[in-house]
Computed example of a mutant assay.
Amino acid sequence: MSGSDRDDGGATHVCQGAMDSLEDMFLNAPIGVYASTPDGRFLAVNPALVRAMGYDSAENLLESITDIATQVYCEPSERELVLRQMAAHGEIHNHECQMWRRDGTKIWVSLSVRALRGPGGVLQCFQGFVIDISAKKHAEEEIREKNEQLQILLAEKDLIFSIIAHDLMSPLTGIHGFTKLLVEEDQAEDWNAIRPVLRAMGQSVQNVLQLLENLLHWSRTLQGLKQCEAGACDLEKVVDANLELARHVAQQKNVALRSQVPSGLLLTADDSMLDTIIRNLLFNAVKYTKPGGVVTVCAEQREDDIILSVRDTGIGMDRKTLGGLFALGQNKSFPGTAGEPGTGLGLVLCKEFVALHEGMLWAESTPGQGTTFFVALPVHGPAGGDDQQSMDERD
């Protein structure tokens, strides 16, 4: 054998070894590798890409996918974007997009592609690398959600300080002023003059107590300390008790309170939370109803839900105000028809408590005609057993 023959044989051996090494890299690469035609068919895929796309074998994938644009890309326009960038630059790197798996689920991938051209610059195929970045995307989404939650918590903190600084200070300042009036000598025996002062003081105290109660409930809910302890509740009794609480305020404004809640309407609920929901909706309705108006509480059972409504003939709301009604920081609170202060916290608390019951809270309103709040609470089956017994004991 001549020296040249030995050299050729050695070169052939080295070349074959390099080809074997490349094939081994293709088969065992931890990321997806493929070649595809310009019209959108795969020519070759490695096992990593087969696994990432959820197929049993390379043969199965090659037979199943005949149009990469519609069967691989979740958005067919993505391939058009890739083709435009390839035409302009000949390659792309780290292009992030979503791809379909065989089972219909989506994965996020980072795509790097180059164009392989033959003689005369004729495009022959595309060669690409696919890296599954779903875990990274999910982590980014989780971080984004955590940041949003943090912003909400910061807004809630600011709102609490605002409530304490303004909405508690205002009635307490009024109480202080009323107290000074009471101790003045020329008012000591004039009960006709003292009576309206006491009435106003009592209203201020009631406003403070309701606000403090809402703040306490809300704080415990945010900390996860407020749990829904459901038991049997007679809705008519709960509504009647809260109507009695609101009656004095309603009489002062000449607002009529009516109940159309039928007797014997039972549901499983946390009685304390149910009290808070109804009380806040009632006082809210009275606050925004003008003298001579009416506030009506209704309830009915629809299949597995009880629908409670609190309807007023008050000033109503426009669509924009209605849209942000239950979102903290978005629900602008306006003074009542008699100048009553408000924070919007009561409605946010109602939303939280209704959600803990797996129910729904919404409102319908027409400016100048009034507002109706609806609460849908699951009955969780007819009251009976221990729940019925506990209700009988309360009776």
Rank of each mutant, 00 (worst) to 15 (best):
R84T: 05
Q149N: 13
I160T: 14
K146Q: 15
L243C: 01
D190R: 10
M19N: 05
G40M: 04
R220K: 13
A285T: 01
G344Y: 00
R258A: 11
M25Y: 12
Q127G: 05
E59V: 01
A44H: 04
V238Y: 05
A200N: 14
D271K: 03
D304F: 06
V294A: 04
I163P: 00
H380A: 10
N60F: 10
L267I: 10
G292A: 11
E141N: 10
A299E: 06
S134G: 08
T371E: 06
H166F: 09
A355V: 02
L216A: 04
N46M: 06
G224W: 01
C228L: 14
L62M: 13
V255R: 04
L111C: 07
G293Y: 03
Q98I: 07
H89S: 05
R199Q: 15
G120H: 04
T313S: 10
D186W: 13
G329Y: 05
A250E: 00
K136M: 07
T337Q: 08
L182M: 11
E80I: 13
P341I: 02
G370L: 00
E156H: 14
L349E: 01
G316V: 04
T179L: 12
F42M: 03
L181Y: 08
V205Y: 13
A188N: 02
G104T: 07
R195V: 12
N192H: 04
P262A: 11
K136R: 14
L361K: 00
A230P: 09
H166E: 15
Y288C: 02
V45E: 02
I175T: 09
